[in-house]
């Protein structure tokens, strides 16, 4: 368990998250991709805190902030999904063409 292996794991999680967020058609599955990206970000932050930052408390604080961002992302995401479904009966990204040229 070194900084390099931890960062490689974080990179793998972020890569899977990018794939999920770009490829999924369902709004809720798309949000899972975003969560996966944040999962990797948190792991990288803790790895830097533990191996490279000499244990400065701001490193842990950054992870707490990312957790708050994750909660906000999920709450707002579900609210938007519900609002969109109520307005358009749509739960797929392709159904929203309002801003398409």
């Amino acid at each position: 368990m070194t900084l390099t292996t931890l960062l490689l794991l974080a990179a793998a999680l972020i890569g899977i998250g990018i794939y999920g967020a770009l490829s999924q058609q369902s709004f809720v599955m798309l949000m899972m991709g975003l969560e996966m990206i944040l999962n990797g970000v948190m792991l990288a932050a803790v790895a830097f805190w533990a191996f490279s930052g000499a244990g400065v408390p701001e490193g842990q604080l950054l992870t707490i902030i990312v957790m708050a961002v994750m909660a906000i992302e999920m709450a707002m995401g579900f609210a938007l999904v519900v609002a969109v479904f109520r307005g358009k009966q749509a739960d797929m990204t392709e159904s929203l063409t309002g801003l398409k040229h």
């Binding site: 390099t4 960062l7 990179a11 972020i14 890569g15 990018i18 490279s52 000499a54 244990g55």
Partner: peptide
């Protein structure tokens, strides 16, 4: 999407492998 995921992993992985980070573990 697969391409973007792989590129993301490769770029971040290259940073993990080749960048030099300070070695200051938690005491």
């Amino acid at each position: 999407a697969i391409g973007a995921g792989i590129v993301g992993f490769l770029v971040l992985g290259a940073m993990a492998l080749f960048a030099v980070f300070p070695d200051q573990p938690v005491s």
